[in-house]
Structures are given as structure tokens and as C-alpha cells.
């Protein structure tokens, strides 16, 4: 089991991670979500032994990794947010490079490369130079490079950033398979639906702190007393938004182009009021949906902002 105990990290005077406690039991898949600058990547870097915490401990099977990170590193695969590959080399050459770094050689190395290429679906492009690959293919190879030494624990830092929906679906399917095979997973993403699909437990992070954690159901319970209303309007009007906030003081209102999201207690019946305010402000509502709570709503409820803000 990988554990973070009161983990903090300061860069000069700025404390980017504050007293984080996390647990990652064997075979479980954990999601870590938070907006940009929340401290996710720094937390991951500390958990994976890349940087030393200012205070606190990371324990692997009960032993601190600060002094001896090797036992963890042997079992750990990390998929970074960046495409950490050599663009001038072929897919196979890249995998061979990372395999050699992990001490694999000869027939074993060749077998592992073939196995990984199959998993990530790049067998037919293995001889092609990486710089000619699409974004999705590079992302898949980026994952493959972390699998050569057969890690039992995989940390993925936003592995689907900037790729097409088809590649994203392929990657999610592949990762889901890893989880089903019993690999422990720590997954960070901006896409809440990815975390909902892959993870059993979720940690929500904001401004360097874990503000909530639990199973998806437990977290959704936090907003079970809430309702989310999505309004599609033809022209967003600043007065309309202001009037909504004034007349519905318990509501959190967020605007994204023509979509207005209102989060508020379930016991209120706001639709009539909302339509009245819209009419007063000459705003035409083209669609209105009352939604079932999602992790996105949990995040909105806890932080007052959307995950991708």
C-alpha cells in the first residue's frame, strides 16, 4: 500500500501542497482531481519519489521512501503529463530504450516490447518514427513506456490531455483493463467522467489541500441535498446572472458561453423564479435540465468553481 502522511511541499515561500493524507491500497483505483495549480502534479511527484517533501512522509508497504525509494520504484510505473519520449526514434526503439533503463535485455526485452505494443495497439506502427505519430498514438506510447517492467502500481497524470475522442476512448478502455487485471491505479484528470469510469475512490484537491475524499457514491452524497439546473439561453445577460444570484441567495451560478449552471439546495423550487427573472431581463431560455448529481457537481459544490476553470 502507498500512503501519504501529512505531506507538504514548499517552493521558496509558496506552499503548494498542504498536509495531504492519501491511501492507495493494492489493487484499488484512486482518482485525484482538482483544477490547474491545485497541487496534483507536485503530490504525484512526491508519491512517486521524484521530489522530496518539505514535511510529511510517503510510505510504501509501511516503509519510508525518502531514504530508500528503490523498492517502490521497481513496482511503480509513471505516465507523465508530457510526452516523455524521443521523437526521432521509432516506437520500438523508444520502448527498447526505457526497457534497457529498467535492466531488461535480450529476448526478455524483445518479448516485453511486443507485449506492450499489443496492449497499446501500436504493433503495426512499431517501426515508425514517433514524431510522425498522431497525438493519441504518442499518448498510447507514453503509457506503454511505463509498462515495460510490469509495474503493480500505475500513476497516470492526465494521460488523455489534448487528444481526439477516439484515442481517448481507446486509452480509457486500455486503462480499465489494467485495473480489472488487478493493477493499482492513481489517476488524475480534468475530465470527471474519466475518473467516474475508472476509479473506486476519489480525492478532491484544491489550493494544495485535499478538500474531500471517498467513494464516488459517498462524494455524491455530499450534494444529494443539492440540485443542479442547467439552462441553455440564447444570449447571456450580465443583469440576468446578477438577478439570479440576488433572488436565489443559496444558488451557485456559473456561466460557460450559452450554458448557465445553477447549483442549489434540493428543497427549493426555483424554476418558476428563474423563468420570471429571464423574462424580466429579456433572456430566452431554450432548454432547462434538472440533473442528477455528478462528481462535477460535487466539485462545484465544494470549491465554487468548475474543474476546468
Amino acid at each position: 500500500m502507498l500512503q501519504a502522511i501529512n505531506l507538504s511541499k514548499k517552493f521558496k515561500t509558496k506552499e503548494v501542497v498542504k498536509q495531504v493524507n492519501m491511501e492507495m491500497p493494492a489493487g484499488e483505483s484512486i482518482g485525484l482531481i482538482g483544477p490547474n495549480g491545485a497541487g496534483k502534479s507536485t503530490t504525484i511527484s512526491m508519491l512517486s519519489s521524484l521530489i522530496i517533501p518539505t514535511s510529511g512522509e510517503v510510505l510504501w508497504d509501511g516503509k519510508s521512501i525518502t531514504k530508500d525509494p528503490d523498492p517502490l520504484r521497481k513496482k511503480l510505473g509513471v505516465v507523465p503529463q508530457e510526452i516523455a519520449l524521443y521523437p526521432e526514434l521509432s516506437a520500438r526503439e523508444n520502448l527498447a530504450f526505457f526497457g534497457r533503463i529498467y535492466g531488461l535485455k535480450g529476448e526478455l526485452l524483445e518479448t516485453r516490447i511486443t507485449e506492450v505494443l499489443m496492449k497499446i495497439g501500436l504493433s503495426d506502427r512499431q517501426r515508425d518514427i514517433v514524431k510522425t505519430f498522431s497525438g493519441g498514438m504518442k499518448r498510447r506510447l507514453n503509457i506503454g513506456a511505463a509498462l515495460l517492467h510490469r509495474p503493480s502500481i500505475l500513476i497516470m497524470d492526465e494521460p488523455t490531455v489534448g487528444i481526439d475522442p477516439q484515442s481517448r476512448a481507446y486509452i480509457l478502455e486500455t486503462v480499465k483493463q489494467f485495473v480489472e487485471e488487478g493493477m493499482s491505479l492513481l489517476y488524475t484528470s480534468h475530465y470527471m467522467e474519466e475518473v467516474e469510469l475508472l476509479c473506486d475512490k476519489v480525492y478532491i484537491m484544491d489550493q494544495g489541500e485535499i478538500i474531500a475524499y471517498g467513494t464516488k457514491e459517498e462524494l455524491k452524497e455530499l450534494v444529494s441535498s443539492n440540485q443542479t439546473i442547467e439552462l441553455r439561453v440564447n444570449l447571456v445577460n450580465a443583469n440576468f446572472e446578477k438577478a439570479l444570484t440576488n433572488q436565489l441567495p443559496t444558488a451557485i451560478v456559473r456561466t460557460e458561453e450559452e450554458l448557465l449552471t445553477i447549483s442549489m439546495p434540493k428543497n427549493e423550487e426555483p424554476l418558476a423564479t428563474i423563468f420570471a427573472i429571464a423574462a424580466e431581463n429579456n433572456v430566452v431560455i431554450t432548454a432547462a435540465i434538472v440533473k442528477v448529481p455528478s462528481l462535477e457537481d460535487v466539485f462545484l459544490h465544494l470549491t465554487g468553481k468548475a474543474l476546468r476553470d
Binding site: 521524484l50 509513471v78 519520449l85 533503463i101
Partner: peptide, 14 residues
């Protein structure tokens, strides 16, 4: 260092 390969190598106990 910028591409992240460096960190990958460090994680391989180099």
C-alpha cells in the same frame, strides 16, 4: 528535462 524523459530515467533508479 523538459520532455519528462529525465524524470522517467530517475524513476528507473538511475
Amino acid at each position: 528535462k523538459r520532455s519528462g524523459v529525465w524524470n522517467r530515467l530517475k524513476l528507473a533508479s538511475i
